[in-house]
């Protein structure tokens, strides 16, 4: 072998090796995150964590029941607002859309998807918090709901389009009107995929912090009803993490572990479900 070829083969081996190292580093980060959180947060997760209110600084114990409930309430509001808009818009795009109007709707959806979450927060502040003169679950849920719309639209459209046209035609051939076909044949056929898309969507906004900072704000106590500021897991992690107290840091770790576990579990279950479905369809 010539010197040049030896050199080229060496470059080949080194560069290919480096790409493997890059992949290892990238995926390794997930291991580091999980390991570090489990190590620091695992010890402080106990029954109190899920049932008690936060303890004042300096007092041991305490939990974040209010933040867990707060997050759940925010997600309920977000779902009530974001899912109907997202799904029905998806149905419109996949089944009824005209060319130009669909283009604009898709464009707006993509645009909305790219808006930084903090800017969504400003928007929700301007249209909900300012007129009502207070931070509230409603305002936070509204912000998260807007963030849910783009992915809901896209997954609904995508899964509806994936329904084979033969199915549609079969129903129409039996004399069903278009909307009946869509409602009774197409949507049920796409339902699993759509639900999966919504789950991923929820998992994503469940971890959002920035749009809640000045919409849902925070609360050390229970937040009754929907018109009061409320605590939420992500905001609580943030406030505890940047605080100077060791007790709070430990709580932040524990809360981080809970949040991450929920988000990853939702992702893993959904993605496995969807990929198995995809594999079955491909076979």
């Amino acid at each position: 072998m010539s010197v040049r070829l030896v050199w080229r083969k060496a470059v080949n081996a080194v560069m290919l090796g480096l790409t493997g190292v890059c992949a290892l580093i990238t995926v390794g980060v997930l291991g580091v995150i999980l390991g570090y959180l489990a190590w620091h947060g695992g010890r402080d997760i106990n029954w109190n964590f899920f049932t008690k209110l936060p303890a004042p600084v300096g007092e041991a114990g305490g939990g974040m029941a209010n933040a867990i409930v707060g997050s759940a309430k925010l997600l309920v509001v977000a779902s009530l607002f974001g899912i109907p808009i997202g799904l029905l818009s998806g149905v419109y795009l996949a089944e009824f859309g005209g060319r130009w109007y669909s283009f604009f709707v898709r464009y707006a959806t993509d645009l909305l998807n790219g808006v930084p979450s903090i800017v969504i927060g400003i928007f929700a502040y301007a249209v909900v918090v300012v007129p009502r003169h207070q931070f509230s679950t409603l305002a936070g849920g509204f912000a998260l709901g807007i963030m849910m719309i783009p992915i809901a639209v896209r997954s609904a459209e995508e899964f509806l389009r994936a329904v084979p046209s033969s199915l549609r035609e079969a129903a129409m051939a039996l004399g069903a009107s278009r909307w009946r076909t869509v409602a009774t044949v197409v949507i049920p056929a796409a339902l699993q995929g759509i639900i999966g898309g919504i789950m991923l969507d929820l998992a994503r906004v469940a971890g959002e912090t920035a749009p809640l900072l000045f919409t849902a704000f925070n609360n050390l106590y229970w937040s009754p009803g929907w018109n009061q500021p409320t605590a939420s897991l992500p905001v609580l992690i943030y406030t505890y993490a940047i605080s100077p107290y060791d007790d709070w840091h430990r709580q932040a770790w524990a809360a981080g572990l809970v949040l991450l576990a929920l988000v990853l579990a939702a992702n893993i279950i959904t993605r496995l479900m969807l990929s198995r479905r995809g594999a079955a369809r491909g076979a």
């Binding site: 990238t26 995926v27 980060v29 997930l30 995150i33 959180l37 991923l200 998992a203 994503r204 469940a206 971890g207 959002e208 912090t209 920035a210 992500p234 992690i237 943030y238 993490a241 932040a252 770790w253 981080g256 949040l259 991450l260 988000v263 990853l264 992702n267 893993i268």
Partner: peptide, 12 residues
């Protein structure tokens, strides 16, 4: 999955 990790966790 990494892309799904909330940013506040990265901050932590």
């Amino acid at each position: 999955l990494l892309a799904a990790v909330p940013s506040v966790i990265y901050g932590l």
